[in-house]
Computed example of a mutant assay.
Amino acid sequence: MTGIALLGAGIFAREEHLPAIEATPALTLKAIYSRSQQSAEALAAASKDPSSVAIYFDSPAVPGKSLDDLLQRADIAAVDIALPILHQPGVVEKAIRAGKHVLSEKPVAGDIAAAQKLIAWYEGLPAEGRPLWGVAENFRYMPTLREAVKRAGEIGGRVTTFRLQMNAFVRSDSKYFNTAWRKTPEYQGGFLLDGGVHFIAGLRFLLAAAGQEITQLAGFSALLDDRLIPVDTIHAVALTQDGRSGTIGISFATEFKSGLEIEIVTTNGAVTWSPTSVKSKTKKAEGSEGEDVEETEFPYNSGVTAEVGAFALAIEAGKVEAIQTPGEALKDLEILQRLLESGAGGAAVQKIGL
């Protein structure tokens, strides 16, 4: 088994990454780090066997308990980083320099420039013996989304249009809103960056099944709820390399409308995805009228355990899956940032493709 440490930030790490690590047979949780002793202890208490998990923290300063001390442990081969967005790049670099394989949380960085800088540094390291680095995007491991991708591939045809629509309302008593670094974000987009990259990743995953990538976009952004600074809503039109247009709508401030759907329509049919269902339409056999419709319901599965399991397999194989590479995560971030830039510029057209 591979010894792994969770470098976590409170609620998110406890509810998602911690059980995912403990449910992956190839990994053994050996240590937990958080910036404060209190949050590190809370994370450890939520583990299956708290007595077997060492705790590390930087506040208060205690000899032998820092992140640097954890990274010096020879029995820990990998780290799973679920820290606040702006703290992650520096910790990713520190862990890789210490010789640890890294699975870091999305987005890959707070903006394109920071992501490019970190990726360039990593790719400049000697390939032989370089630790693996993957970026965790659990949407690509959700069973429902994988089923939708499968159906889109089977249906085939040329894309005619597509749609991403996500509406939610972040309440004042939400545990995520009351996470300090989310409540007063120091990064672009607020919840649109933190949560929005998931939805962009899902859209890109489905479009790729039909051979398409987004190459241009233009949209309007707004702050509908003053609590959710700096912006909480964006509506845009996007074009693929073949000139196929679709729409992207993401809002975290629509109290009386909620839901998440991604739809791909081709000349042969359509696939509509939600986190718990996949619906597909295809033409009936020649000579028949109407459509064949197949709709399947699924229990909710976040995909987090599967993504951690995929990284464990990557360590064994010595290579990260394409859908977990930092370059793939950078493409998600690029589209999200261009949406924000277009919105700030009054629907200024943004080209995609670094």
Rank of each mutant, 00 (worst) to 15 (best):
T266S: 15
I234F: 12
K283V: 11
N301H: 09
T276R: 02
G309M: 07
V304Y: 00
V265T: 07
E294P: 02
P299G: 05
T215D: 05
G219E: 03
A322P: 14
G211E: 01
V278C: 01
K284S: 12
K283G: 13
V308E: 03
A218C: 09
F298L: 02
G259Y: 09
G246T: 05
V231W: 01
V265G: 05
E289V: 12
S274M: 06
F298W: 05
T276C: 05
E263N: 12
S245W: 05
A222M: 04
A329C: 12
G303Q: 00
V293W: 02
A285N: 11
E294V: 03
E295W: 08
G259M: 12
L239A: 14
P230W: 06
R204E: 09
F252P: 01
L206V: 06
L217F: 06
W273N: 01
K284R: 12
I248Y: 13
Q324A: 14
G243Y: 13
D225F: 11
L224E: 07
F298Y: 09
G249I: 07
P299K: 08
F205K: 01
T233H: 06
T325D: 11
E213N: 08
S280C: 10
A312V: 04
R244A: 15
T296Y: 03
E291D: 14
G202S: 07
G249R: 11
D292Q: 11
E213L: 06
K319D: 15
Q324D: 15
L206Q: 01
P326G: 15
E321M: 12
L313C: 11
A285R: 10
A208S: 10
I264Y: 03
K279G: 04
K283A: 14
S251H: 09
G309S: 10
F298C: 00
T254Q: 15
E289N: 10
S258W: 12
E297M: 09
I315V: 12
G246S: 05
S258G: 13
A222V: 08
L207I: 02
P275M: 00
F298G: 00
Q324Y: 14
T267L: 13
I234C: 07
G219V: 03
V231S: 07
T233E: 05
L207V: 03
G211L: 08
V320F: 11
A210P: 04
F205M: 09
A329F: 14
S245N: 08
T267S: 15
V308T: 04
A270V: 04
A209S: 09
I250S: 01
E291M: 10
E261V: 12
F252R: 06
V304P: 00
Q212W: 06
S274V: 02
K279F: 04
E297Y: 11
A209R: 01
L224D: 05
